[in-house]
Design a protein around this nucleic acid. Sequence first.
DNA 1: CGTAGTGAACCGAACGATCGGTACACTACC
DNA 2: GGTAGTGTACCGATCGTTCGGTTCACTACG
Lengths: 185, 185
Amino acid sequence: MPPAIHPRDEIIQRLMRVIRRVGYDGASISALSKATGLGKSSLYHHFPNGKHDMARAVLEHLAEFLRAQLFEPLRGAGTPKRRVEAMISTLDAFYAEGHESCVLAQLVLGSARAGFHAPLRMIFSEWIDALADLLVDAGIARATARRRAEDAVVRIEGALVLAGGLGDVGVFARTLKQLPATLLG
Amino acid sequence: MPPAIHPRDEIIQRLMRVIRRVGYDGASISALSKATGLGKSSLYHHFPNGKHDMARAVLEHLAEFLRAQLFEPLRGAGTPKRRVEAMISTLDAFYAEGHESCVLAQLVLGSARAGFHAPLRMIFSEWIDALADLLVDAGIARATARRRAEDAVVRIEGALVLAGGLGDVGVFARTLKQLPATLLG
DNA sequence: CGTAGTGAACCGAACGATCGGTACACTACC
DNA sequence: GGTAGTGTACCGATCGTTCGGTTCACTACG
């Protein structure tokens, strides 16, 4: 293996850092170029279809991250409460206690949302499914479990929006804190 | 009153329609010009500071709308449950049952969010305050009321994001439906 | 061995289009 | 006449994208 100063994952993570902060429309190629340390044409070498490809890659990368760090642990070992708490602390770190906004929300709201419809729906669905399965595991009826799982994701996304809008991350902390009780009854 | 083909409110509403769909960064001046039927120079006549002024005006217009249509009714007559239900049906209409996204969220997430920090915080705060006051009115302890009010706004914003992400407005409908129970216990 | 060739990774300069914004003359109505 | 509102033409900057070209590790072949 050659030195590989710029592993693809590292590039994508830097793209994500920009997009999650300023959104798809707000992320210019030159900004993405600066953030990655790659020239514009080098970016096009890695992502032949341009900006859309970059965001797509970010979305795929995020999906893998979520599967490994959130969805799988939800299905893993430990009591349901423990597993929910693990998810919460992962979320708290990923969103920097509410200071960072959500890439998913950025792409849902951007002007190019139509182009990301499928992967976005996939990610949200998997998230809800993983949570619902956990609740079923905890002895909660399937229908109730789904409703609560959906509600949990709703709250997380909403808390991030509100934290940004109020300029106060307290609402995100409070929302995360009361998640276990809301989910598990 | 002269014919006034383009009353200011009508202009601002059309600006809002664009911004709420594609966000601040995605809303180009030419798109805003087309949407309002006004030439660029006319737009700059009405909003001397350009795009930022337009979004600012949209935000002020929205604040007035929310005060008149949401916050005041929350403090008005009728049982607390009735007042909550009135808010919900207004929200359902305003967001077209979940098909339209939230202007506030768009401005919170856009790259120019710093410029709208104050009015955004104001609106969210007023909303939470109005809801909390209603709950106190319904006999709920102040601290609990605030937490629940905050949670309600969190859910509304989150449900709009998720409705867009899933491409299914069902989640918005379900969230609104269970709001009265969540708020009033 | 050497050396010609290959392809992946990279780059800055430049493209046409559009960006947000301005200048100014004109019209409509007081 | 004055002034609010408008249309046209235009500005420099930046947009996303493409171009021409360089570097360099590696392979094929004499």
